[in-house]
Write a protein that binds this DNA or RNA. Sequence first.
DNA 1: TTTAGTCACGTTTTT
DNA 2: CGTGACTAAA
Length: 687
Amino acid sequence: MIDKNTISESYNEKQREAIAFSGKHLLLLAGAGTGKTKTIVGRAEYLINQGYRPEKIQILTFTKRAASEIVERVKAGISDQDVRSLNGSTFHSWCNQLIIKFPNLFGAANYTVIDPDDQLSIMKMACGAASEDYGKTRLKPQQLLDLFSFARNTRINLTETLRKLLFKGKDDLQTTEDINALKPQVELLIKEYQSQKLRQQYLDYDDLLLVVANRLNKDAEAREILAKAYDHILIDEMQDTNPLQWYLLKPFENICHLFCVGDDAQSIYSFRGADFKNVHLFQERVANSEIKVLDKNYRSTQEILDLSNWLLETSPINYNKRLTASRGAGKQPTIVNVANQFEEANYIANHILESFSEGGNSFTDFLILSRSQYYTRPLQAVFLQKKIPYQTFGGRKFLEAAHIKDLVSVLRVINNPMDEIAWIRFFTFIHGIGAVRATSYMSEVMRIEPENVHGLDLTSIIPGKEGIKAKSYYDAAYQNRGNVKMAIKDLYKTMEFDLAMKYSKDWYEKRKGDFPVLEILSENYATLGEFISEGILDNSANVAGSNTLGGSKINTAELKDHVTISTVHSAKGLEADVCFVLNVSPKTYPSAYSLGNIEEVEEDRRVLYVALTRAKNDLIITRSKESINAYHHQTDKDEDDTSDSAYFLEGLPEHLALQTSPKSFTAPVTDAKKANTIDLDLGMDFS
DNA sequence: TTTAGTCACGTTTTT
DNA sequence: CGTGACTAAA
């Protein structure tokens, strides 16, 4: 379809300039809805049409979902070439692939990637091993991990990390003294954590990036090898990259071309070390680079943008941004004042069902955004009750669910017999074995010579019926170790009864159906090791309350019609006809946690901005009456409260939004006819 | 001494 | 919903 040397008419002038950019490196500042993803897709297509090999183009995004969307779209646009080898992934997944692809270069190919739960277990072990120092700190293992991760991601030293995270950035004599007193213990515990990890051959998320980045920054030979592997790197959401990711990208400045796309007004990851000001320093940091801008919005109506623009303009920070709608005027945004979460949920459910009876809509037209995952629970309950199909984004991941981890722990010990956490999880799963005995059995396993560990007879370690049980699990997986899917299938058959017992409360409702999904998921992986590592890094599948299946690898082909419920953070890049933004109340926007800290308040503002700019035609904001009243009440009294003007919608000009309350919905709600035809049974069509 | 089971509690945001 | 503290039972 696409002529090799011209770019499709569907792009505007500026998009085309970016797509055909012929300099070395580019930063494209693209506001919300200005065709950011489309332009990345266009760039990838253009490069392939120019003759660059698809496997030498790497697309980097923040979420797996965004990555696969871009790759799918490129593949759909190019028919006559082999674009299967085009690779799109998250920073973490990409580093993991590099580590596996170049085993000699990074020397960590046999390591197991661990998730945050495992990190916590290891940090607990480390604190146990160095209990004297741990006792002096009064810090929890999770806090220690947060400190360490923040330091590594921002690449600032421990003293300053402690100051920022524990002492709110205070820089006085007393604080410095406190820090100096605390630092040696923290340092020691982190060292212990590091050595535990190394001994058990684990890589945590930060390690993945650091292993690759360190090597490339220090070793010219490594850079040469990768220079042969890559021509172009296309990076999405550049404003969210943190110093560690910059450190990873820096060597590529001389290896290949960088095409970076971002929007400073949508930077919402500072808690992970990202700094939106970084995009402003792009040209100073990257030699031979240029900046281009996209500012024409194709997504929303002008009314929606007026409200969004107003939000940014009331900020003390100058974002220098004013989006204009190429689509023109439409419907005014609505603010609905609700009494409580239940009314809010019902209002939304009824609104969706009503627009159904009027015809023309499908569930996919609706997107519901929340500040936190937690807040959407009542909504999910109402949706289940009214049989509205929905999918959630954000929240606990599929492979982090307890019942899945139980099964995967057996696969993990076969894949990496040094994996102490997995051994302990495996052993404690067996009824009658608790933490104490599990730990002692695990130590016995560790004493076995490495060459004899594979395929060992567990009854020689664990006596009685527990030993027989352990052996039966182990063997079921071990006999199928060459075939991931078979291993899961057999292992599940062996474990099913015990799993059902352990999770008897919600086994049939929530858990059972996940195992067929796990089997399907595993089909994409050739080896146990790949399944475990990549699976852990795959954020796209989640379980929490979903009544459809998550996972880009499972069902991109047969997407069902469903409403999307998402946290704002997970919604970047999403858009929808009708968009609900939940609970835009004081103490949420900005969050009570952020009050008093200007930078955090401004980040919350950007969170709201991202939420508002998802809507194409209809933007509906809900907020709780009580919190508004309480807010006014409180601020009337506290004259000197510095936060009295903090609430983002305070002082909103009347013409920008229409205020209403939910009309009473006493009539029994009739479910949409369409809704009834949708099968809510989990995992049903995968047998 | 070890394990299993119950209850209350508190939850930003993500790889 | 998952964690942590506590109790009862093995």
